Amino acid sequence: MRVLALTLALCPVTALASDNSHGAPAPAHAAPSHTAHDLPDPGPLCEGFGPQTPRDIGNYHGANHRVFTTAPPASSLNLCNIHTHTNAEHKGPGFSIYAGPGDHGGYMCNESYDLTPAELEDPAHGHGGFHGVKPGDTIEVHWVHTSCEVGPGPGLGSCLSSACANPQLRVEAQVFLVVNDPNALNFMDYVYGGEVNGLHQAKRIPSDTGTPVVFAGSTTGTTYSQQICSPLQVTWSVRPRCARLDISSLYEWGESQNVFAEEHSHGVRQLVTAPSLLAPIR
């Protein structure tokens, strides 16, 4: 999830646009050249911040006890943004293959090396309507919800307003393995669907990929690291298993002039592992 402004005193353009990268990571079917343990120490940890994200959702330990109120369920909030990251920012039981460091690292679905040539074929031959993703890639989708009385729109600035500068925020997250397969899930089933009981909602959010792991965290995106922490407080709900997603449906969303103006997948914030930057998961 990209950064949200802490207050309206922050510039709503520069503060919200933490990740505008259009580049793609190495192919998901190519073996990564790094492990998570062979990188140099980048420097001292940031101090005094609340719990950070992303994390290994299979590790429930954490030593950051900063407390904030858990956001209500998504059905009681307004959907304000949908965006994707390539690869997964989180590590989980179903997406545990390390893809390397940097903005285009992260984690890949465990089935990434088991795809057939047909599943890896790009039906758009590199000219699809959603950039930074191709068959074989892993993406993490974030459905961002806010307590503000706002409608969905481009960028995470849509999640707050002049009357609601510090909303409660919840992100529903699902990791997908992108394939060339019309029998896989259709992304158009999970896009913005209009108002339900006066609240802006997605058509659907995946419900059959395991019980979501819910925890206190922060915003993500390439601006932040373990040395540069996000000050924002976010309730996360991350599903533990990957699902297969048809690449053509993602291209369709990018070409549809969607309300979020999303047409490319964003980079990742590297995994937060320092116990002092993680909340315990209960």
Rank of each mutant, 00 (worst) to 15 (best):
T7W: 10
A9S: 07
S21L: 04
H22C: 00
H37E: 05
D38W: 10
L39D: 04
D41S: 03
P42K: 12
P44W: 08
G48D: 00
Q52K: 07
Q52M: 10
T53H: 12
I57S: 11
Y60W: 12
H61W: 06
N64K: 03
T69F: 06
T69R: 13
A71W: 14
P73W: 13
A74L: 12
I82T: 11
T84K: 06
T84F: 14
H85E: 05
T86D: 08
T86W: 01
N87V: 04
K91S: 10
G94T: 02
G94K: 01
S96R: 03
I97W: 05
I97V: 11
Y98M: 04
G100F: 05
D103F: 01
G106T: 09
Y107H: 12
N110M: 03
N110E: 12
E111H: 00
T116Q: 03
T116K: 01
P117V: 02
A118Q: 13
A118C: 02
E119F: 02
G126K: 06
G128S: 09
H131T: 04
G132A: 08
V133N: 10
P135N: 10
D137S: 09
I139G: 09
W143C: 06
V144Q: 14
H145R: 08
P154W: 01
P154L: 10
G155R: 02
G155F: 01
G155N: 08
L156C: 05
L156Y: 04
S161T: 15
S161D: 13
S162C: 03
N166G: 09
V171T: 15
Q174A: 14
Q174L: 13
F176E: 04
F176G: 04
V178L: 13
D181L: 09
M188A: 08
Y192F: 13
G193F: 14
G193L: 15
E195V: 00
V196K: 08
L199T: 06
L199V: 06
H200S: 14
H200E: 13
H200Y: 14
A202W: 04
T209I: 09
V214C: 11
G217T: 05
T219H: 01
T219A: 11
G221M: 08
T222D: 03
T223L: 14
I228N: 00
C229D: 02
C229E: 04
V234T: 12
W236F: 15
C242T: 05
A243P: 12
I247K: 07
L250G: 08
E252I: 12
E255T: 04
Q257F: 07
F260K: 02
F260Y: 13
A261N: 07
E262G: 08
V268Y: 01
P275M: 02
R282V: 08
